[in-house]
């Protein structure tokens, strides 16, 4: 926050930047989530085996 002036203009500036960044960053996370199903094509985990416990 050091580069943002500690006044109302700074508050508005940081709010606008962060609000836009919220959408950008969260959209990025959304894209990652949307890509997760691709992993199913290459790898499969057997739930039944997991539930049996470890060695």
């Amino acid at each position: 926050m050091n580069s943002i002036p500690d006044n109302i203009h700074g508050a508005i500036l940081i709010s606008i930047i962060d609000f836009i960044l919220s959408f950008v960053i969260i959209s990025g996370i959304g894209v990652l989530l949307a890509l997760l199903p691709l992993a199913n094509r290459y790898w499969h985990i057997d739930e039944a085996k997991l539930k049996q416990g470890h060695h």
């Binding site: 508050a11 508005i12 940081i14 709010s15 959408f23 969260i26 989530l33």
Partner: peptide, 25 residues
């Protein structure tokens, strides 16, 4: 997840109003 980004507006409205009331950034 976009709903989370949209709901952030409350944070920034409060931030701006707090600054108007004399709080530091």
């Amino acid at each position: 997840v976009l709903l989370g980004a949209g709901a952030h507006l409350g944070i920034f409205v409060a931030l701006i109003l707090a600054k108007l009331l004399g709080f530091t950034l």
